[in-house]
Amino acid sequence: MKEIIFYGRGGQGAVIASRLLAAAAFKEGKSVQSFPFFGVERRGAPVTAYTRLSDTKIRKRVPIKTPDYVIVLDPTLLENIDVTKGLKKEGHIIINTKVPQSNFPFSKRFKVFTFDAAAIASKHKLGSKSAPIANTSLLGAFSKFTGEIGIDSLTESIAEGVAVKTEENVKAAKEAYEKAR
């Protein structure tokens, strides 16, 4: 079983991203589960969402404590949240930022990918200029970095699951997939 935690802020699409990833993996025949941190959500406040992907039926119904992957939608969260908490030794961290990975002290202990998903989101007019919504772009990068999900099932899942600016979101995910390395 692979367990993924999304860290974002209310309005950045962390919960949607966790669902899109689950729906995409389901297309690939996986057993899936996706849920937000059980709480009260507000725009701007830190939001956590979880996705489980497994080859066997998932029966566990508790939040993820030891993730395989951590996806950070908003780098400002790194000041307040320890995103390495519970992360497995071989775990990966994917951060939406322009800053190179060597700037993050935990990159010595964990594999860290940094990727400017916000730039791609801006280019496709997702969200506003000051607050681009980079969830689908970051999923595209996740697909490339980890290989846990195929880009085709991911874009299919986005096309079905995103009602607003569907095409732009699909394009952003594809572009992120191509650019990520």
Binding site: R19, A23, V32, Q33, S34, F35, F38, I58, R61
Partner: peptide, 10 residues
């Protein structure tokens, strides 16, 4: 609550 209500699964 949440364990079902907000959890997406097939």
């Amino acid at each position: 609550a949440f364990y079902h209500s907000h959890t997406a699964e097939p």
